[in-house]
């Protein structure tokens, strides 16, 4: 290492301290956002429970084949929804999703299937755009305001439309999900075709129901709500995991900066001592020369 003056070292330490201040602040911000996102995630529960219950009840009473959103076809064309964050500095958060996507695309291709991508988040767009992948649509800057249904219901409508028009035979979604505050997992879920769980005990209950205008129309409405909601939930899950991942990354960065400061302080002390010693030697030499 080239020899650094004490002043250079001091400047370097100050620089690391500044970085540490930023990572510390980012950690605090992520912690606050994480709490908010976790509350938002919990709030989805009453809605999802009721929605699944209604869909399951109705799906038992309609002819699957006749309903365009419930049809099961051979999976030739696949839509793959990739959910990443808009921003980085969160460890391997975004690259985990991208890696998983590449792996799955590879596998689908080997099976002779055609894959189309729907991209959520700037990081996904940056990676997949203009690289020869079929991109159906892309959305950036989607987490700035709170994640909301206005946005996901617009995208959900496009996906439902593609399924009805048989442009796609199966829809998958990949996103990160928080498991504990310290770790998350990249998960892939199937959105379409929908597979309701059949519960025979409930069938009788529906008979007394008055369903207007028709079962099919109410079911179609519910299925569309279902897909909008799944997208919403994936985004909320992803942003919860993102904040946790960033908190962790920033915590590590703060700690590393602290260690670097310690290391450089030792170097600084040594350098200072060295310069004092040289100075003393000079003075003593000079004094001896005079005698």
């Amino acid at each position: 290492m080239a020899k650094l003056s004490t002043r250079d070292i001091k400047r370097k330490i100050q620089g690391i301290k500044n970085t540490q201040r930023i990572t510390k602040a980012m950690k605090a911000v992520s912690a606050a956002k994480l709490r908010k996102a976790q509350i938002q995630l919990q709030a989805t529960r009453p809605y999802s429970e009721k929605l699944y219950e209604l869909i399951n009840d109705l799906a038992m009473h309609v002819d699957r084949e006749a309903h365009p959103l419930l049809q099961i076809r051979e999976e030739k064309n696949i839509d793959y929804v990739v959910v990443t964050a808009d921003r980085g500095l969160a460890g391997a958060f975004n690259s985990n999703v991208i890696k998983r996507t590449l792996k799955d695309i590879q596998q689908f291709k080997e099976e002779g299937k055609n894959v189309n991508l729907i991209l959520f988040g700037r990081k996904a767009v940056q990676f997949f755009k203009n690289k020869g992948f079929n991109v159906v649509s892309e959305y950036e800057d989607i987490y700035r305001d709170n994640v909301n249904l206005t946005f996901t219901s617009q995208v959900g409508a496009i996906i439902a439309e593609r399924y009805i028009e048989k442009k796609t035979d199966a829809v998958y979604i990949v996103n990160n999900e928080l498991i504990t505050t310290a770790n998350y997992e990249t998960k892939v879920r199937k959105l379409f075709p929908i597979e309701p769980e059949i519960d025979l005990e409930k069938i009788d209950k529906m008979v007394q129901y008055n369903i207007e205008p028709t079962k099919e129309q109410v079911l179609e409405n519910l299925l569309k709500q279902y897909i909008n909601f799944q997208l919403y939930r994936a985004m909320v899950e992803s942003s919860t995991a993102e904040h946790a991942a960033r908190m962790l990354a920033m915590d590590n960065a703060t700690r590393n900066a602290g260690e670097a400061i310690k290391r450089w302080t030792v170097i600084f002390n040594k350098a200072r001592q060295e310069s004092i010693t040289t100075e003393l030697i000079d003075i003593i030499n000079a004094a001896q020369a005079i005698q």
Binding site: L54, Q208, N210, E212, Q217, V218
Partner: peptide
Amino acid sequence: ILENHMLVLTN
């Protein structure tokens, strides 16, 4: 919808 409305499910 008042009390004792008939059972209904609609959009």
